[in-house]
Design a protein around this nucleic acid. Structure first.
Lengths: 348, 348
DNA sequence: TGTTAGCACTCGTTCCCCTTGAGTGCTAAC
DNA sequence: GTTAGCACTCAAGGGGAACGAGTGCTAACA
């Protein structure tokens, strides 16, 4: 993630308040904000002329931009950064909103995947942006069981179950010589060896002991474990509400919309952001702070979620840089704790 | 699927050729076709005036529509139907296109899911429409193995492997009283009972014998089998290239595009179409022939694919009614046989 | 009798020009 | 330091006029 510093020291309190008013207004209306609007709207009791002077300064300092001479000003990326760091009212959810989340997330569902999908749906509905939720990552959990199920000559399905009850499965290659009985034995052996270890550590710590014990099939078994580890470290992400972007005038240009949708469909950047952010409680990437030029007009806000007190995944929202950061962050915070509660119970 | 008849008897050969020329042109250009264009374009050697008379007739018969008096004509749904049934040149793929498919589908991938995803990607790339591929359906295959893997108290993962090597897994509920050993026993029992049967038939034919044999846990086991059968009959569909729709002028209206994208995102209608069509080699639904009002401006073309000589799934393309049916159908045909080859080898 | 040239007519599209109005920056006065 | 006043800018919107693609009708032709 790129630099997140702002230049708050450059601004006195009045400039900050004016900037805040402008950003607030622009987030709501999507159209350039003029001095009169600010003067009327804010309770500062300043005339448009005074505001104009300040706005002129703010423009020079790089916080505002002018589409053309006779339009109002729009916030620059720098302004959004400052806004997120210092200016914005961190909105509280209304009771209705909290109820909505509770109602749609309070669930008798007992499958992690379904909970994740539902979370993504609710998140996208609430914010009207594109939402994404990372499926809980195995890497941070301890293995409880590894099952190998023969599928066809040369391939088997590996199912890993963690101590928290998260599961993931993948097809792996196996030596053709192995019989189903062999596979079952190996399955038990691997479970015994990996039980209680984290998969990513296991490869280093466990392989040698297997190599020592198992004898002739050691190579094959080690390869299988590596294969499993590789498959399991692939992360899945649930993305919902990509079409919401079409509700925002900045994407009324279909070419732009198409580019956004294509980027979301591949999902690789979003996945990267989520995994990169899975250790910071909340992160905000504004415009070019995304190290992806295709996303230079988007902001991405993410939050982590936990189970049993440990971070196990993250979720977030993608939208135009003119995003309602206050509302989004409030919703994400609330949903993070809701999801954490649900998963903590579910994965106990 | 709705009526697919046309009214070919109403038209003489010349009208048919004119209609064909108009549809061809409109598919290419998306703008109303005038009499002069038809006269020049086609090799019929008729003057615009004559064409106009014929076009007037065609309009009266409901094959053409006029956006306004001074525009050309555009084909009606009825015209597309006739076009698909009788008029269209069933295009051959160019060598380049066939090579492209071969290159991107000829694959050392040995996992069914990955093959399906890749197929969907290639299909969407080739056609520039939205593509969808149904994951091979278990229902038509015979069970080879059912594995139950304990995950947490009260839940287990069920993995079903078919004789063709297709796998599918789902979480199921289990009685809390069961120990891992019990589960393993039940797992073997179920495998023994279901081996060689189709899942959907199994419930009826096998349950009684289980009920007779197993004794006290019979109810629990039967419930589990039913649960498995339910989970396994859920079909998965891979959808790729939804954003392609934005390339077509009929969707330059964002509201329309949004509706389309939302419909595709839920995927339920597309899934329905694919499953409904999974026994007709090729199906075409034009506009309101879709029994979904949200899709009244779209056409859906599907084709089935096989493994070992049996239909096991279907795939298709969604686009505007002004779709290049000839090209799409040729591509689908070719890709169907390619995919069938790959899966036949893979699932042997 | 079917085909065609000619022509008046329709109507959406494009271009241009004018007006409007939101907004600015500067200056001078408070 | 703040504000009123004012000239200036410029995108957006409205109203023709000109354009042109296309039609339908009529009358003549083979």
């Amino acid at each position: 993630m790129t630099d997140v510093s702002d230049n708050t020291s450059l601004l006195d309190i009045r400039k900050m308040r004016i900037l805040q008013a402008i950003v607030d207004d622009y987030i709501m209306t999507a159209s350039p904000v003029g001095s009169r609007t600010v003067s009327k709207r804010s309770d500062m009791g300043l005339s448009p002329a005074t505001i104009r002077n300040e706005m002129s300064d703010l423009t020079e300092l790089g916080f505002l931009e002018q589409p053309h001479t006779s339009a109002g000003r729009i916030p620059s990326e720098k302004a959004y950064r400052l806004y997120v760091n210092h200016l914005m009212d961190s909105a509280k959810l209304t009771d209705d909103e909290a109820d909505y989340i509770k109602k749609h997330l309070d669930t008798r569902v007992h499958e992690v995947g379904e909970v994740i999908r539902q979370t993504a749906r609710v998140l996208s509905d609430m914010t009207n942006y594109t939402s994404m939720v990372l499926v809980p990552q195995l890497s941070s959990m301890k293995v409880k069981r590894v099952s190998l199920i023969p599928v066809s000559e040369g391939s088997a399905m590996a199912v890993v179950v963690t101590n928290t009850g998260v599961t993931k499965n993948a097809m792996i290659k196996i030596p053709k010589s192995l019989s189903p009985d062999d596979i079952e034995k190996i399955s038990k052996l691997i479970t015994a060896k990996l039980d209680g270890h984290r998969l990513n550590e296991a490869v280093e710590s466990v392989l040698p002991s297997i190599r020592a014990e198992v004898g002739e099939q050691a190579d094959a078994v080690c390869e299988m474990i590596e294969d499993i580890e590789r498959s399991m470290s692939e992360t899945d992400v649930e993305v919902v509400g990509a079409s919401n972007i079409l509700d925002y005038p900045e994407y009324s240009d279909t070419a732009k919309a198409r580019q956004f949708l294509a980027e979301v469909e591949t999902g690789s950047y979003l996945q990267k952001v989520l995994t990169d952010s899975s250790d910071v409680e909340m992160s905000v990437r504004i415009g070019t702070e995304n190290d992806n030029p295709d996303m230079k007009d988007c902001s991405v806000v993410t939050v982590t979620y936990k189970a049993g007190g440990k971070n196990i995944g993250s979720m977030g929202v993608v939208g135009p840089t003119r995003m309602d950061y206050g509302k989004v962050m409030a919703i994400l915070k609330y949903m993070s704790s809701s999801l954490s509660d649900i998963l903590s119970k579910l994965l106990k």
